[in-house]
Design a protein around this nucleic acid. Sequence first.
RNA 1: GUGAGAUUAGCUCAGCUGGUUAGAGCACUGGUUUGUGGUGCCGGGGGUCGCGGGUUCGAAUCCCGUAUCUCACCCCA
Length: 405
Amino acid sequence: MIRSLRGMNDILSEDYERFEYFIKTASEVARRYGFHYIETPLLEETALFKRSVGESSDIVGKEMYQFNDKGGNDVCLRPEGTAGVVRAFVQNKLDRKGGIHRFFYHGPMFRYERPQKGRLREFHQFGVESFGVASVYEDASLIMMISDIFKALGIGYTLQLNSLGDQNCMPQYRESLVEFLDLHVSEICNDCKRRKETNPIRVLDCKNEACQNLYKEAPKLFTSLCESCKSDFDTLLKLLDANAIAYEIDTHLVRGLDYYSKTAFEFVSTEIGAQSAIAGGGRYDRLVEFLDGKETPAIGFAIGIERLLELIVMPQKEREGYYFGAMDAEALETIIKAGQAKRSTDTVIIEYTPKSLKAHLKGADRVNARYCAVIGENELKDAKIWVKDLQESKEETLSLTQFKK
RNA sequence: GUGAGAUUAGCUCAGCUGGUUAGAGCACUGGUUUGUGGUGCCGGGGGUCGCGGGUUCGAAUCCCGUAUCUCACCCCA
């Protein structure tokens, strides 16, 4: 038997219903916030991700589905969504056009990782990207959008917030942190030694207890923020307070992708295991420039769809549509014709095997149909059809012409 | 990439220290005397015991390899 590749799953039946329900709900909320759908290719030039996500990140360093295509181009399956949207934004010269551009997207992403619960090699994200708004009001607005989406889906979460600083305060801070790490290099774990070289800020996120104790003494990013970062963060907190959005400030919250600055946030669920981040995002004011565009402030987030599928509280399913069946082979032709006509307005399931009324009712019940329509000997003789409303338990026998109405 | 556990019917699992035709519940399917479901009763189909080797008179059961899943690390949504 040929199986799907490791970490790549089919989405079907009930899972797909949840999947579709999520997309529909999240898209509606995004549209209400003035965002428009954008579709970008799954395959992009590898350089796009190297320059945006950053070569120091694990995503680019070791998790990309990268290969040379037949034309010799170095390409890869997208590991995340932001880079492609920013590329499209620049390529379509929206940075030159000016103004505000707000997009949302959803689709598959690919990372060559060891799969586990909530972490697949092909997984799906829903994300939004907003270009052209420097105001921290947009940061608050995006957080409220996620809150709205989760509220609509019945999903509980904790919101964690931090500020990563900008080009004025972050480089200085990074330097002072590296100095600190150099002084204590013998005390930190091997992972942190590696992080010190690749992405020093990440050490703050280390789960090693000894490291964490040590970092209590380390310089704090939070207290090193410049004036504008500090006041923006304070404003953000005020806005969230005013809109009854609960949050925790986590000064060790770090984003894994290099392009983030200033506001960083993560929505976390305690109900889904180790891969607990269900949404994450932040500001990336420099990224458009990095990708050869005109300096444009921007912010976005992404939601991991598979991770929250099991958290979604689905609305109760109601009986819907028609089930058609014949009790004798002679009535089959008539029932198929009647069912086909009904398809112009309703969901219709036609049973092709003649069987007893009881068997048809069971069949209608199993497919969760609202109505069970059957033609037997008596009905066929009088050109009528017997219809039962399975929800109200009411039945009637109509003439076929009347039934079509 | 590292460490640990699992893999038996469509699903959830039982199968003790290797011993004759591998079981249960649910699901599916048919019937339940004359045309009434979701809720009774009786029957039926369905398994190369993940895959490949090995030990043995004999392997679902022991050993080795491999694949996949799960958990933790790493990383991230």
